[in-house]
């Protein structure tokens, strides 16, 4: 290898090499940015502008929509659908917490203890993605159906009573309930939680935990003072990657929920595709966007990740 380098260096013409370097450095970063910028402009910025202007139009499908600058639609959209908004955020929040509780120990195991099984377990984590989102969610219909063991066990162990008591189910079935929706969301977005957690826990030097133990920290203190703070970037990334798509999701609510579990994503979906009230649907999309961006900004600030990342 050193031989190859040695012959290559004199081969490059020295004069042009030194002259071209500063100039090339100037435009190379922009050239690298270009494809992504183009993509984002065409498929994100322009649709956002269209959506924004659409939300301020009035009319109907038959007679066409006219831009009227109707800002009042936002107040209208919010007052009519805020319960769906709150419901979406609670389901997504609950699913995120569940995914974190399930994902953290698993990610820790894969990163620190799995040894040579690391890659196998990682593939297993991603394996559900080999089937489509829809089929995976439909499978939960079977898993949670009344005549399947999960529901029967839950009934025998009194779990269904607990779920009813906290309002996650309204009967002693599991399916078609907020519980089923949250389970579906948790399941579908779990890998998005595990992978960033894994990435940050994998970098954790086990010698730091030895050092913490050496300095009188009990295993729990070592986790709280060393492991957890050092994995925070992964926690923040994982929770965002779970919470954001989960709060806009409508498949889980539609397949696993009932009429009382409609999430904001379902409302937007039906306003766009069935009611054909484009301005309202667009306004709802924007409200959802603003709410999520605000929550995320507050969250990231609270977690203090600027310093960690």
């Amino acid at each position: 290898m050193s031989e190859a380098t040695a012959t290559r260096v004199p081969a490059s013409p020295l004069g042009t090499g030194t002259a071209a370097t500063p100039a090339r450095r100037n435009w190379v970063p922009y050239a690298l940015l270009l494809p992504g910028l183009l993509w984002l402009t065409v498929f994100f910025v322009l649709p956002m502008i269209t959506l924004g202007s659409q939300s301020l139009q009035e009319g109907n499908v038959d007679e066409g929509f006219v831009f009227t600058g109707n800002v009042g639609i936002y107040a209208d959209a919010f007052s009519r659908y805020w319960p769906h908004m709150v419901r979406s955020l609670s389901y997504a929040g609950l699913a995120t917490v569940l995914a974190l509780l399930l994902g953290y120990p698993l990610a820790y195991f894969i990163a620190q203890k799995a040894g040579r099984w690391k890659n196998v377990v990682l593939v297993l984590v991603i394996a559900p993605f080999f089937t489509s989102f829809l089929i995976r969610t439909l499978a939960w219909k079977t898993i949670l159906s009344d005549n399947w063991v999960v529901t029967q066990w839950a009934q025998q162990l009194g779990i269904t009573d607990v779920l009813q008591a906290v309002g996650l189910t309204s009967t002693d079935s599991l399916l078609f309930s907020p519980f089923a929706v949250v389970m579906g969301l948790t399941y579908n977005f779990l890998p998005f939680m595990i992978l960033p957690l894994y990435a940050s826990l994998e970098r954790l030097d086990p010698r730091l935990l030895e050092a913490a133990g050496d300095l009188y920290a009990t295993p729990i203190q070592a986790f709280r003072r060393v492991t957890w703070p050092l994995s925070l970037p992964g926690v923040v990334a994982g929770t965002l990657l779970t919470f954001i798509p989960a709060s806009g999701d409508f498949i889980n609510a539609r397949l696993l929920g009932n009429t009382q579990t409609t999430m904001i994503g379902s409302v937007i979906d039906s306003q766009f595709l069935r009611v054909l009230d484009y301005p309202l649907a667009a306004a709802l999309s924007f409200v959802l966007l603003v709410v999520i961006v605000t929550l995320v900004a507050l969250y990231v600030r609270k977690a203090g990740t600027e310093e960690l990342l």
Binding site: D205, R207, L208, E210, A211, A212, P229
Partner: peptide, 14 residues
């Protein structure tokens, strides 16, 4: 009541 100076120092980076 024993403490170690580790070869890699193992200082807490955060």
């Amino acid at each position: 009541n024993v403490n170690t100076v580790f070869q890699s120092y193992a200082l807490f980076p955060h």
